[in-house]
């Protein structure tokens, strides 16, 4: 427990808070990378996933892409891309976007696919246009899974941005990496605690947002019978199973 006390001492030492290499600027950087990449990834991934889910076209490509993304080691990917593009915030954002898109795509696509077919059929039969079906029926009903995709993508981005510390970019990962490199375990542990706290806070905020956004009446009983869930994606209520792909 002494180790934790040391780490906490480091965290609560006002001298470590500000300054160029302080906790606050690195936290801001970490959040900035995460927010920016998520914004870009959402703009790309969600409309694409909705398109695939609504039309049913490109379904196989999405399934293949999301399982491939799960198998690819993020650490290797980030190093490889940075070797080719050179160091910088730009390439980092590109890597983070690449990693965030598959879970978003899968969430949006599987969310739409999980919507009860007769409900959509009925919406069409009473005279909704395709747009109205998408906006007023499919998206609200798919919200839990769409949000699940957003949450797991965000966690993955926060985790991967931590590794960016290794290639010299700032962010909370720097404390961790510096600590490991200097064999200063107190510093590494402090960095780890910061990263964990950030991840948990962000996920909690997203969980609250999800409660606000997901319509009532959807939380239960929106989907098909459980035994219809398709391998190899297990149904994980509200969270798309890109599983711990956080590096």
């Amino acid at each position: 427990m002494n180790l934790f006390l040391d780490a906490l001492n480091f965290l609560f030492d006002p001298a470590n808070l500000t300054g160029a290499n302080g906790i606050v600027p690195r936290l801001v950087d970490h959040v900035w990378y995460t927010g920016l990449s998520m914004a870009v990834a959402i703009v790309i991934g969600i409309p694409l996933g909705l398109l695939v889910g609504h039309t049913g076209r490109g379904r196989n490509a999405v399934v293949a892409l999301s399982s491939a993304a799960r198998a690819l080691p993020t650490l290797g990917l980030i190093f490889l891309i940075i070797l080719y593009t050179g160091l910088g915030v730009g390439p980092l954002i590109v890597v983070l976007v690449i990693l965030a898109v598959p879970p978003l795509l899968a969430g949006a696509y599987s969310g739409l696919e999980a919507v009860n077919r007769p409900t959509i059929d009925a919406a069409r039969a009473i005279g909704m246009t395709e747009w109205q079906i998408l906006l007023k029926v499919e998206i609200p009903l798919a919200m839990p899974l769409i949000f699940g995709g957003i949450r797991s993508a965000t966690l993955q981005v926060i985790a991967t941005a931590t590794i960016a510390g290794y290639v010299g970019l700032t962010g909370l990962g720097r404390f961790l990496i510096e600590g490991l490199a200097l064999r200063d375990y107190k510093l590494a542990l402090a960095g780890a605690i910061l990263v964990i706290a950030l991840a948990l806070c962000v996920d909690a905020i997203l969980a609250l947002a999800q409660r606000l956004v997901v319509p009532h009446g959807v939380a239960r009983g929106l989907t098909r019978h459980p035994d219809e869930s398709a391998a190899p994606t297990p149904r994980q209520h509200g969270r798309v199973s890109t599983a711990p792909s956080n590096p």
Binding site: P118, T119, D121, A122, A123, A125, I126, G127, L222
Partner: peptide, 16 residues
């Protein structure tokens, strides 16, 4: 479709 009423098995109501 908007001018014709439609009722189906399992009602097809919007759950949300």
């Amino acid at each position: 479709r908007r001018s014709i009423g439609y009722v189906m098995q399992n009602s097809g109501l919007l759950p949300h």
